[in-house]
Protein backbone atom coordinates (compact mmCIF):
# COMPACT_ATOMS: atom_id res chain seq x y z
CA UNK A 1 0.00 0.00 0.00
CA UNK A 2 1.45 3.34 -1.02
CA UNK A 3 1.06 6.26 1.37
CA UNK A 4 0.99 9.91 0.41
CA UNK A 5 1.68 12.75 2.80
CA UNK A 6 0.19 16.10 1.86
CA UNK A 7 1.35 19.16 3.79
CA UNK A 8 1.43 16.96 6.89
CA UNK A 9 1.91 19.14 9.96
CA UNK A 10 1.93 18.52 13.69
CA UNK A 11 2.24 21.44 16.06
CA UNK A 12 2.55 21.21 19.84
CA UNK A 13 1.94 24.63 21.34
CA UNK A 14 4.25 26.88 19.36
CA UNK A 15 6.49 24.10 18.12
CA UNK A 16 6.16 22.51 14.72
CA UNK A 17 7.43 18.99 15.21
CA UNK A 18 6.36 17.63 11.84
CA UNK A 19 6.07 19.36 8.50
CA UNK A 20 6.13 17.21 5.41
CA UNK A 21 5.20 19.14 2.29
CA UNK A 22 4.57 16.34 -0.13
CA UNK A 23 5.86 12.81 -0.27
CA UNK A 24 4.93 9.34 -1.40
CA UNK A 25 6.24 6.12 0.10
CA UNK A 26 6.78 2.80 -1.68
CA UNK A 27 4.56 -0.26 -1.40
CA UNK A 28 5.34 -3.88 -0.56
CA UNK A 29 8.87 -3.32 0.71
CA UNK A 30 10.61 -2.54 3.98
CA UNK A 31 11.24 1.17 4.47
CA UNK A 32 13.59 2.33 7.20
CA UNK A 33 12.72 5.61 8.93
CA UNK A 34 15.82 7.14 10.45
CA UNK A 35 16.86 10.44 11.95
CA UNK A 36 18.05 12.08 15.16
CA UNK A 37 16.12 11.88 18.42
CA UNK A 38 13.11 14.18 18.44
CA UNK A 39 13.09 14.42 14.65
CA UNK A 40 9.42 13.49 14.53
CA UNK A 41 9.66 9.85 13.51
CA UNK A 42 7.24 8.54 16.15
CA UNK A 43 4.91 11.44 15.49
CA UNK A 44 4.84 10.54 11.80
CA UNK A 45 4.18 6.86 12.51
CA UNK A 46 1.43 7.58 15.01
CA UNK A 47 -0.34 9.82 12.53
CA UNK A 48 0.16 7.43 9.62
CA UNK A 49 -1.28 4.49 11.56
CA UNK A 50 -4.35 6.48 12.60
CA UNK A 51 -3.56 6.77 16.32
CA UNK A 52 -2.90 10.50 16.22
CA UNK A 53 -4.32 13.36 14.18
CA UNK A 54 -2.25 15.89 12.28
CA UNK A 55 -2.69 19.58 13.06
CA UNK A 56 -2.96 20.20 9.33
CA UNK A 57 -2.60 18.24 6.12
CA UNK A 58 -3.40 14.60 5.56
CA UNK A 59 -2.23 11.12 4.84
CA UNK A 60 -3.65 9.32 1.84
CA UNK A 61 -3.82 5.55 1.64
CA UNK A 62 -3.83 3.55 -1.57
CA UNK A 63 -6.88 1.29 -1.83
CA UNK A 64 -7.01 -2.13 -3.47
CA UNK A 65 -8.09 -0.61 -6.79
CA UNK A 66 -5.32 1.97 -6.86
CA UNK A 67 -7.17 5.12 -5.83
CA UNK A 68 -6.23 7.04 -2.70
CA UNK A 69 -8.43 7.69 0.32
CA UNK A 70 -7.87 9.83 3.41
CA UNK A 71 -9.71 7.37 5.65
CA UNK A 72 -7.13 5.36 7.58
CA UNK A 73 -7.80 1.67 6.90
CA UNK A 74 -7.62 0.75 10.59
CA UNK A 75 -8.47 -2.90 9.96
CA UNK A 76 -5.57 -3.29 7.55
CA UNK A 77 -2.75 -1.59 9.46
CA UNK A 78 -1.08 -1.92 12.79
CA UNK A 79 1.69 -0.41 14.87
CA UNK A 80 4.26 -2.19 16.99
CA UNK A 81 5.96 0.07 19.48
CA UNK A 82 9.14 -0.28 21.46
CA UNK A 83 7.29 -1.33 24.62
CA UNK A 84 4.19 -3.06 23.31
CA UNK A 85 1.28 -3.81 25.60
CA UNK A 86 0.52 -7.48 25.97
CA UNK A 87 -2.95 -8.58 26.97
CA UNK A 88 -3.02 -10.24 30.40
CA UNK A 89 -3.34 -13.74 29.04
CA UNK A 90 -1.20 -16.37 27.33
CA UNK A 91 1.20 -15.90 24.43
CA UNK A 92 -1.02 -17.83 22.03
CA UNK A 93 -4.15 -15.88 22.96
CA UNK A 94 -2.29 -12.61 22.45
CA UNK A 95 -1.27 -13.72 18.98
CA UNK A 96 -4.76 -14.86 18.06
CA UNK A 97 -6.50 -11.73 19.39
CA UNK A 98 -6.50 -9.60 16.19
CA UNK A 99 -7.82 -12.58 14.24
CA UNK A 100 -10.59 -12.99 16.79
CA UNK A 101 -11.48 -9.31 16.37
CA UNK A 102 -11.84 -9.97 12.67
CA UNK A 103 -13.86 -13.15 13.25
CA UNK A 104 -11.45 -15.44 11.45
CA UNK A 105 -12.59 -19.07 11.69
CA UNK A 106 -11.14 -21.02 14.59
CA UNK A 107 -9.03 -23.33 12.38
CA UNK A 108 -7.40 -20.33 10.72
CA UNK A 109 -6.66 -18.76 14.10
CA UNK A 110 -5.07 -21.80 15.67
CA UNK A 111 -3.26 -22.76 12.47
CA UNK A 112 -1.69 -19.35 11.97
CA UNK A 113 -0.88 -18.91 15.65
CA UNK A 114 0.98 -22.21 15.67
CA UNK A 115 2.88 -21.38 12.49
CA UNK A 116 3.88 -17.96 13.76
CA UNK A 117 5.04 -19.33 17.11
CA UNK A 118 7.05 -21.98 15.30
CA UNK A 119 8.63 -19.44 12.98
CA UNK A 120 9.71 -17.09 15.74
CA UNK A 121 10.62 -19.65 18.39
CA UNK A 122 7.70 -19.18 20.79
CA UNK A 123 6.15 -22.65 20.60
CA UNK A 124 7.43 -23.74 24.03
CA UNK A 125 5.93 -20.57 25.51
CA UNK A 126 2.49 -20.94 23.93
CA UNK A 127 0.72 -21.23 27.28
CA UNK A 128 2.99 -18.83 29.15
CA UNK A 129 1.33 -15.79 30.74
CA UNK A 130 2.36 -12.55 29.08
CA UNK A 131 3.69 -10.89 32.26
CA UNK A 132 6.25 -13.63 32.74
CA UNK A 133 8.02 -13.07 29.43
CA UNK A 134 11.44 -11.50 28.95
CA UNK A 135 11.73 -8.36 26.85
CA UNK A 136 12.71 -10.31 23.74
CA UNK A 137 9.94 -12.87 24.17
CA UNK A 138 7.38 -10.14 24.74
CA UNK A 139 8.48 -8.29 21.61
CA UNK A 140 8.34 -11.48 19.53
CA UNK A 141 4.83 -12.17 20.84
CA UNK A 142 3.76 -8.65 19.94
CA UNK A 143 5.23 -8.99 16.44
CA UNK A 144 3.52 -12.33 15.84
CA UNK A 145 0.27 -10.74 17.04
CA UNK A 146 0.78 -7.72 14.75
CA UNK A 147 1.15 -9.82 11.61
CA UNK A 148 -1.26 -12.62 12.51
CA UNK A 149 -4.14 -10.96 10.67
CA UNK A 150 -1.96 -10.14 7.60
CA UNK A 151 -2.05 -6.35 7.75
CA UNK A 152 -1.34 -4.56 4.49
CA UNK A 153 0.83 -2.03 6.34
CA UNK A 154 2.95 -2.66 9.40
CA UNK A 155 4.53 0.22 11.31
CA UNK A 156 7.32 -0.55 13.76
CA UNK A 157 8.69 2.05 16.16
CA UNK A 158 12.13 0.94 17.38
CA UNK A 159 10.98 -2.65 17.78
CA UNK A 160 14.41 -4.02 18.67
CA UNK A 161 15.79 -1.29 20.92
CA UNK A 162 17.04 -2.96 24.06
CA UNK A 163 16.27 -6.44 22.74
CA UNK A 164 18.85 -9.24 22.79
CA UNK A 165 20.65 -10.14 19.54
CA UNK A 166 19.03 -13.50 19.09
CA UNK A 167 15.51 -12.11 19.40
CA UNK A 168 16.48 -9.22 17.13
CA UNK A 169 17.66 -11.70 14.49
CA UNK A 170 14.41 -13.67 14.80
CA UNK A 171 12.36 -10.49 14.51
CA UNK A 172 14.29 -9.32 11.46
CA UNK A 173 13.93 -12.60 9.64
CA UNK A 174 10.21 -12.66 10.42
CA UNK A 175 9.85 -9.15 8.99
CA UNK A 176 11.67 -10.10 5.81
CA UNK A 177 9.56 -13.25 5.41
CA UNK A 178 6.35 -11.33 6.04
CA UNK A 179 7.23 -8.75 3.41
CA UNK A 180 8.31 -11.31 0.83
CA UNK A 181 5.44 -13.75 1.31
CA UNK A 182 2.52 -11.40 1.81
CA UNK A 183 3.72 -8.25 0.12
CA UNK A 184 3.27 -6.31 3.36
CA UNK A 185 4.34 -2.69 3.31
CA UNK A 186 6.60 -2.22 6.34
CA UNK A 187 7.94 0.93 7.97
CA UNK A 188 10.55 0.55 10.65
CA UNK A 189 11.94 3.35 12.78
CA UNK A 190 15.39 2.39 13.98
CA UNK A 191 18.54 3.90 15.41
CA UNK A 192 20.61 1.07 14.08
CA UNK A 193 22.10 1.80 10.65
CA UNK A 194 23.42 -1.78 10.49
CA UNK A 195 19.84 -2.96 10.89
CA UNK A 196 18.79 -0.73 8.00
CA UNK A 197 21.47 -2.37 5.86
CA UNK A 198 20.31 -5.84 6.90
CA UNK A 199 16.58 -5.52 6.22
CA UNK A 200 15.54 -2.29 4.52
CA UNK A 201 15.01 -1.78 0.81
CA UNK A 202 14.22 1.90 1.09
CA UNK A 203 15.13 4.61 3.59
CA UNK A 204 13.50 7.87 4.66
CA UNK A 205 15.76 10.27 6.52
CA UNK A 206 13.94 12.73 8.76
CA UNK A 207 15.38 15.68 10.64
CA UNK A 208 13.54 18.47 12.42
CA UNK A 209 10.16 17.24 11.24
CA UNK A 210 11.05 17.19 7.55
CA UNK A 211 11.93 14.46 5.11
CA UNK A 212 15.45 15.47 4.19
CA UNK A 213 15.96 12.68 1.74
CA UNK A 214 14.53 9.31 0.75
CA UNK A 215 15.76 6.65 -1.61
CA UNK A 216 16.97 3.11 -2.08
CA UNK A 217 18.75 1.90 1.05
CA UNK A 218 22.12 1.36 -0.61
CA UNK A 219 21.98 4.70 -2.40
CA UNK A 220 20.97 6.72 0.65
CA UNK A 221 23.48 5.06 2.96
CA UNK A 222 26.44 4.99 0.58
CA UNK A 223 25.94 7.99 -1.67
CA UNK A 224 23.63 10.40 0.13
CA UNK A 225 22.62 13.47 -1.84
CA UNK A 226 22.23 15.79 1.12
CA UNK A 227 25.01 16.99 3.37
CA UNK A 228 22.89 16.36 6.51
CA UNK A 229 22.19 12.77 5.45
CA UNK A 230 25.88 12.21 4.83
CA UNK A 231 26.72 13.44 8.31
CA UNK A 232 23.97 11.31 9.90
CA UNK A 233 24.81 8.05 8.17
CA UNK A 234 28.47 8.78 8.78
CA UNK A 235 27.74 8.46 12.47
CA UNK A 236 27.91 12.11 13.49
CA UNK A 237 25.86 12.97 16.55
CA UNK A 238 23.13 15.22 15.20
CA UNK A 239 20.66 16.93 17.50
Amino acid sequence: MKLRFENLTKIYGERTVLNIADAETPSGIITGVVGPNGAGKSTLLNIACGLDEPTAGRVLYETANGVFTDRPPMKDMTLLSQKPYLIRTTVEKNIAYPMKLRRFPRETRTGRTEKLMEAIGLTPLAKQKSWKLSGGEAQKTALARAISFRPRVLFLDEPTSGIDNRSTAEIESMLRAECRKNGTTIFIVTHDIAQVRRICDHVIFIAEGRIVEQGKAAQLLDTPREELTRRFVGGELLY
Binding site: C49, G50, L51, T78, P84, Y97, F149
Partner: peptide
Amino acid sequence: PEILRLGVTLGGSRWS
Protein backbone atom coordinates in the same frame (compact mmCIF):
# COMPACT_ATOMS: atom_id res chain seq x y z
CA PRO B 1 -4.36 4.56 27.78
CA GLU B 2 -1.95 1.84 26.79
CA ILE B 3 -4.68 -0.81 26.63
CA LEU B 4 -6.88 1.36 24.41
CA ARG B 5 -3.89 2.27 22.28
CA LEU B 6 -3.33 -1.42 21.66
CA GLY B 7 -7.00 -1.97 20.90
CA VAL B 8 -7.01 0.85 18.37
CA THR B 9 -3.80 -0.23 16.64
CA LEU B 10 -5.17 -3.75 16.29
CA GLY B 11 -8.28 -2.40 14.61
CA GLY B 12 -10.69 -3.08 17.46
CA SER B 13 -14.12 -1.47 17.63
CA ARG B 14 -15.21 0.70 20.57
CA TRP B 15 -17.11 -2.21 22.01
CA SER B 16 -14.26 -4.72 21.70
